[in-house]
Design a protein around this nucleic acid. Structure first.
Lengths: 171, 171
DNA sequence: ACTTGCCTTCAAGTTTACTTGAAACTTTAG
DNA sequence: CTAAAGTTTCAAGTAAACTTGAAGGCAAGT
């Protein structure tokens, strides 16, 4: 797929869209789409075929990893925007990106960890009452505590509360 | 918004869609959508208004948290499907859900952590070469190592590599 | 009583992230 | 040389997750 003939150990493969697709596990259509959205870039050979710099593979890996954890292409694009387009990113480039993303990633990790801990603690504590497991919505728990946790522990309904009997005659 | 008159300290507020929207920070249209998708449920009062059990707030919080970290409504729906619809979930219910999700959450956390470490290590190690920072795409790194890391360290191009000079005469 | 605001359904529109298809050109293998 | 595989553009289609709008019923305050 190289546009030039191999030159031994120093051969560099410039990549076609198919090469990149195969190596990143991404459809060629997706790569064209990412290019449209300015997330990656390419040059062209004499007949109009896209030619990719090797770095594109790291960029695509980055995009897919970031997407996987819930970041949007727009957020990812902003981050990638801080990387140079023409040359291989250097330490300063990555440092800038890392600094910008650290808080975002930290927050995401924290959210996930909390979610897992919540589930785990729900096993541990029995999680039958909002009293001992008011992690989900503290705001809401406060409102509930003064009211009647008993109701939240079982199916029994306090008096005066709407039930099937609340639907006497449908209009 | 209660459908019955307050009865002192034991008052239970059954929630209207507006209440739930306000307490979960979710649009009413979204709540209706979630109901359509069977992620939450409601009963109706005599005039057709939705009436929500208190638990719906935890369910919605759960949905939004899970969504935030990249899970789809379908995945979330499957998880919630293991919770009882009519009654407040008990320990066994949550345990089942937690067990099912633990690996998924672990994987997500691992991915995020790796992403962050990659960025951090790119600062630490200089990240100028794939040799020392081949975390992005090991597969690709291997292919590169034999070729010419020099190229990847700078803008200079090895001989025989396509450049602007690769576009001699368009067609 | 009246007015404002919340609620209902249902259909259609929006955004994000792609995928698919058509028609044509290029490259590669035999 | 020829056929198959790969590539191009552009337009349109798709799926997920909602949002918006219309037309109307219900509720709460004054």
């Amino acid at each position: 797929m190289s546009t030039t003939k191999p030159s031994g150990a120093t051969q560099i493969r410039l990549l076609t869209i198919g090469d990149v697709a195969e190596r990143t596990g991404t459809a060629t259509s997706t790569l064209r789409f990412y290019e449209d959205r300015r997330l990656i870039s390419s040059r062209r050979n004499s007949s109009g075929y896209r030619i990719y710099h090797h770095d594109v593979i790291r960029r695509v890996s980055f995009i897919r990893t970031a997407k996987r954890v819930g970041l949007t292409l727009e957020e990812i694009g902003e981050a990638l925007g801080s990387l140079p387009d023409g040359r291989t990113p250097n330490a300063r480039d990555w440092a800038r990106l890392a600094r910008a993303w650290s808080p975002v990633l930290d927050e995401r990790i924290a959210t996930l960890t909390r979610l897992r801990e919540q589930l785990d603690s729900c096993i541990g504590c029995g999680c039958l009452s909002l009293t001992s497991c008011g992690i989900w919505n503290p705001d809401d728990v406060a409102a509930t505590l003064g009211d009647g946790p008993r109701y939240l522990l079982s199916d029994e309904r306090p008096d005066g509360v709407a039930d099937e009997s609340d639907r006497p005659a449908d209009s």
